[in-house]
Nucleic acid binder design. Structure first.
Lengths: 257, 257
DNA sequence: CGCGATTTGTGCACGCCTTCACAAGCGCCT
DNA sequence: AGGCGCTTGTGAAGGCGTGCACAAATCGCG
């Protein structure tokens, strides 16, 4: 349906034709497909069926086919998808044909780990600079990079074309850092600080909050427990009488062992 | 539809017994509301309107009201929500009235940081044990906890009631670790390894992949660039063209995972 | 004591996403 | 060459989530 370009091994970089605007849900899954495809390529597979790829990516095969069809996919009926071709396609759509520069702000506990995270490098990114507001951390070398003071952000940004900013500071500092990133032209931010960022239109923010993930799991854990017949948390009248309150919920671990 | 029960007298005891089964999207937002509420409580607010709370949590007020209504909410028309009461409510629903024990497997680069992450502790969890398969790391003390060998998992699990397992190992080891966690009765897993885990029914897995987040941002960056008629590879150029609002946003912005 | 200002709770409509089911296309085997 | 089995791509249906808009409820004040 849409006219696509031939991704041949030759053409990379290059600005290009209009990207089909994919459903957000599809975009969020493409990286997963990409990872699965790389695994397949490494294990010597030349082609792969939607069923097999879907399994490897942990999704439904119909969903996968629809996702791929959105980007005007190149599958062959009766055969499957060409692994190498599909990798090129997805990498192109995701904008991974150029290795984007990432600036990481905040080299505390978490930031320190992120700076050394191999996954960033191996999957299309390049950590271009590290920043912190704490003078005592400035100058420290992490993974071959020297930590700069956040005040130098503008200077560095003028040299490196920073595509994405990663915020790994404490929450109170995050908004200020975001403002500075936006000021130097960054339009994509990955925020690890547990707070809401306010940014201008046109700037994308994605948030990762580790505690929230645990809390969601906690909910399901709680729900599972309450289904399997829990001691305390009786219905209706069960725990209303407790003055001190909260002890009423099952202090019991109900997960079957 | 939802039968709420009245706040039964005495003070503010979280008093909802049966867990209503909330929409998954709502569950994913509750932790965000909770965080915002704690902030409000610390700044001396006793009540809060849906509008104010929604802003603090970065969502739409109608959405917030609907979310809260699902858990049989206790708001007062014309006034707003009682902050302390709402905190109790949400914490109860999320199962945070008991401090759940977390087992962290893999104390490499990322795991090391997670072990020291204060957010886990401050938001309802307790790191009960650290594990690794690497003998050279066993015995190391991190943040007051000694790293145990993964083979000791069963032993420790028998002592501590582990509610949630966190996997921060390299991808190839993740499935094996997941199997071991499941074997000792863990039914909730947070997976940081970039791979799909296969687990039995009844076990919840949530995945956090840092590289995927960056790749999603990369897509939007790519798309934004392709709209504004890009030069081949000059990202930083966007600096001057911004003011005014060119972007066709409105649906972008912090998409939940 | 009643009225108006304010804010919650929700019915409803719309759009996105998922899933099913199947026709069309392709390669292989006879 | 022809038929058969396999796999893709997609129309259609159903479900879920979002946001609007408004009635119901509550408080404060005159």
């Amino acid at each position: 349906m849409s006219q696509h370009r031939h991704p041949g091994a030759s053409g990379h970089t290059g600005a290009v034709p209009a990207l089909p605007d994919l459903p957000e849900a599809t975009v969020a899954r493409l990286p997963e497909y990409l990872r699965a495809l790389h695994n397949l390529a490494e294990t010597g597979h030349d082609t792969v069926s939607s069923e097999a790829l879907a399994t490897a990516a942990g999704v439904n095969s119909a969903k996968l086919r629809k996702d791929l069809s959105h980007l005007g996919s190149y599958g062959t009926r009766g055969v499957g998808y060409d692994v190498a071709l599909l990798i090129d396609q997805i990498e192109y759509v995701l904008g991974l044909t150029q290795r984007r520069a990432v600036a990481l702000v905040g080299v505390g506990n978490l930031g320190h780990a992120l700076a050394g995270y191999a996954g960033f490098v191996s999957r299309g990114f390049r950590i271009a600079a590290l920043f912190d507001a704490d003078e005592s951390r400035v100058g420290e070398e992490i993974n071959g990079l020297v930590v700069r003071h956040i005040d130098d952000l503008a200077t560095i940004a003028a040299q490196e074309a920073i595509a994405i900013g990663v915020i790994a500071t404490p929450a109170p500092a995050a908004q200020s850092v975001a403002d500075r990133l936006v000021a130097v032209g960054v339009t994509s931010i990955l925020n690890f600080a547990p707070c809401v960022l306010s940014v201008p239109d046109g700037v994308d923010v994605r948030k990762v909050d580790l505690a929230i993930e645990l809390q969601i799991l906690s909910f399901h854990e709680h729900r599972k427990a309450s289904l399997t017949g829990i001691p305390a948390s009786g219905p209706a009248a069960g725990l209303t009488a407790l003055p001190g309150g909260l002890a009423a919920t099952g202090t019991q671990e109900a997960v079957g062992s």
